[in-house]
Amino acid sequence: MTRVRSLVSVVDDDESVRESLPDLLREFGFAARAFSSAEEFLESDCVDQTSCLLLDIVMPGGMSGPDLQRELTLRRQEIPIIFISAHADETVRPRLLERGAVACLFKPFSETDLLGALTTALRG
């Protein structure tokens, strides 16, 4: 039986993140897709396939990361979310975790942290 790789979706407006993260995820053994906005992700056909979401917090001009989190909850899409952010704002972390996020990683994060968060996300 072919083992279906888990799909990790990356939603981040920063191009270099969309470039580099999927490659690392594939090295981890995941399948990976990148989207430049929450809207783009929602409009794609990956929503049901996504086992874990790596989600930027601040994305200009449209839905933010937390907005997408709320939207997915409304749609009853229980996708584990790992927030990633370049803003060193510690105050947002508790709220996001309260609302069900698996982890909140601040850039730059190590691959160990990332792998740890992914493992936790996919275990549960």
Partner: peptide, 16 residues
């Protein structure tokens, strides 16, 4: 933010 973005890219790419 400005510095963390490229730093993150460096670490991710280097790990890869």
């Amino acid at each position: 933010h400005e510095v963390n973005q490229p730093l993150s890219g460096i670490i991710t790419n280097a790990s890869t």
